[in-house]
Design a protein around this nucleic acid. Structure first.
Lengths: 348, 348
DNA sequence: TTGTACGCGTTATCAA
DNA sequence: TTGATAACGCGTACAA
């Protein structure tokens, strides 16, 4: 097939070893030879066989990536691509290849993720969208190679948790609403199979309990889809004593809620304030533009790679990396309530 | 490191060859041995070394994927992920690995795409977002392995062009506007480095020339970003004789145009009808919801893989695969103009 | 500074 | 049906 170091060696009348050394710029070959070898290599359009190299050095320079996308095929998961961009960028920058596995290929049904990785000799792996009820969780815990999991915490010797500081994010959102004067604040949470749902719910409960305003009846559960947000929006409208604001645990659901509210004739944001979570692109174009908690998905990808790389190089590194969330104020919360609150406060 | 067929062989007192055969379920080994080997393999948690296998069989079972994302890092490119989903799905389904290369890693600056691929012995490659001024175009033309390029046509013996039927898409859009009564229809096109821009412009020109309504002054050029759409929107507003409709060659730009129009107080869609191209998610949530030409990005990924696979298997296959576009009617075009047209027609 | 011999884990060939 | 041997392309120890 292609040209190998042997061909170059033959052409120059030297040994393959010498060529190998020259190509790798090692210092136990003459400069003279290096120059010659490089020239011929160029001439013959030589390209090293990474398979052979990896086999002999026992180093694959490869990271496996598994994406369990939340919204399969729909492309409604802009986050997936952002994670991936960060992962690619950082991996390639460090000389690592990314091999990508799809969610619902037959492969995954037959073989475990770990097995897939072992066969390819990946040095580490990154998981996205892993659910709490995944059948391979135990295996992951005992992985022989380092794994970064984005947004799901799995306790294991070789696994890290990369996420946004969800508690802080929720508090950012609720605190904003609180300062705007809201006291009855509902939550539409994601499904329980996602770890972030638990984190966000706990943070929500904690915050409102601190204020003495937690109400069980204001807790709603969707599944991160727009449709489920729409449905929960309907339920909220049926409440006898409506909340004045809703914290929605994902922008996609928030978009659904808003759709429902608008359909039912609510004036937004005057009659209902809404804060989302994620900062996905469509939120900007929604009307009203969605106020939300921003996550830096690209950076999460970068951190995921970095942790794996550190592990590979024997460094320890913190097994829990939480990035800073950011409150992005747009138009889906009624800021006039604030003045109303001040008036009330002034009176009392 | 891991356990190899040799270990299994030793344990069973047979040769490595026999084990290999048994594991591969070949018919020149006894069933008896197969059963034993499988049992021990399981027991020892054996996993084959794909590197070694690929080296010796000279078959990498790998497809390289290069994504030059239009909007780097921004995640504003929901298409990228949809392509990729289709690619992953179809490749994995056929037993192929995907190795992913990032746009702006240093790697790409140093080495050519082809070189990168050769080293990894990929059997084929897929390109997305490749620009007409890419420095490696010549090399791609002469690729020794099959390459599917999405949305860019590069003539070459081993390369295919996977795209939407852009001409048809444009005609779908313009015909819709035409039937609605529009005669002065502007275009905001993408930059000239993208092949689709040429295709869309040509189709636009062709259609309007057929109708005797092509006007040079109604042609505007953006760069696919929202910002550029916004800017072009401003220019359209400065026109003495404004068009009644705008065909925008990407939804992202369309969103920008609409933003500008709304800022300037235009009533939409009454005072300006807009049709986009792509059918990205945010368009649904825009107000007015964006009427657009839908492309099936997932399917494009699937087709790209299939073509490469066909080539690998020696089949010929059409080197130009055009998927059907779809007119998605939402709220950004004024449908009342139609009635107006009928009135006019009735009068004359 | 260069070359020889070997090994990485697997499959292919061919003889037993 | 099984096994010894060679080969894939490369890197490394060690000898020259």
């Amino acid at each position: 097939m292609g040209v190998t170091i042997k061909d170059i060696a033959k052409r120059l009348g030297v040994s393959a070893t010498a060529v190998s050394k020259a190509l790798n710029d090692r210092d136990d070959v003459s400069n003279e030879l290096k120059v010659k070898v490089r020239k011929i290599a160029e001439e013959m359009d030589y390209s090293p066989n990474s398979l052979a190299k990896r086999l002999v050095t026992n180093k694959s320079n490869t990271i496996g990536v598994f994406m369990f996308s939340r919204q399969k095929n729909s492309g409604h998961d802009p986050f997936g691509f952002q994670f991936l961009s960060g992962i690619m960028e950082e991996a390639n920058r460090n000389g690592y290849d990314i091999v990508l596995f799809s969610t619902d290929s037959d492969l995954l049904a037959e073989k475990s993720y770990i097995k897939l990785c072992k066969e390819r000799k990946v040095e580490g792996a990154i998981f996205t969208g892993l659910r709490l009820d995944d059948p391979h969780l135990e295996e992951i815990k005992e992985s022989p190679f380092p794994i970064s999991i984005i947004d799901t915490e799995v306790k294991g010797n070789n696994v890290s948790f990369i996420s946004t500081d969800n508690r802080k994010g929720v508090r950012l959102a609720l605190n904003y609403l609180w300062k705007l004067g809201h006291r009855r604040i509902a939550i539409i949470n994601g499904h329980k199979k996602a770890m972030v749902s638990h984190l966000r719910y706990n943070a929500y409960k904690e915050f409102l309990e601190e204020k003495g305003q937690f109400r069980e009846e204001l807790v709603f559960t969707g599944d991160f889809t727009e449709r489920s947000g729409y449905l929960c929006g309907g339920k909220i409208l049926e409440l006898k004593d409506r909340p004045s604001a809703v914290f929605v645990a994902s922008d996609l659901m928030a978009l659904g809620v808003i759709k429902k509210f608008k359909e039912e004739g609510l004036k937004l944001p005057e009659e209902m304030s809404i804060v989302g979570f994620d900062n996905i692109f469509p939120g900007e174009f929604n009307e009203p533009a969605l106020t939300t908690i921003g996550q830096n998905a690209f950076e999460m990808g970068v951190e995921a790679v970095n942790w794996v790389l550190k592990r590979i190089n024997g460094e320890k590194g913190n097994k829990k990396i939480l990035l800073e969330p950011e409150l992005i104020i747009r138009d889906s919360c009624d800021t006039n309530q604030f003045q109303w609150l001040e008036r009330v406060t002034a009176k009392s």
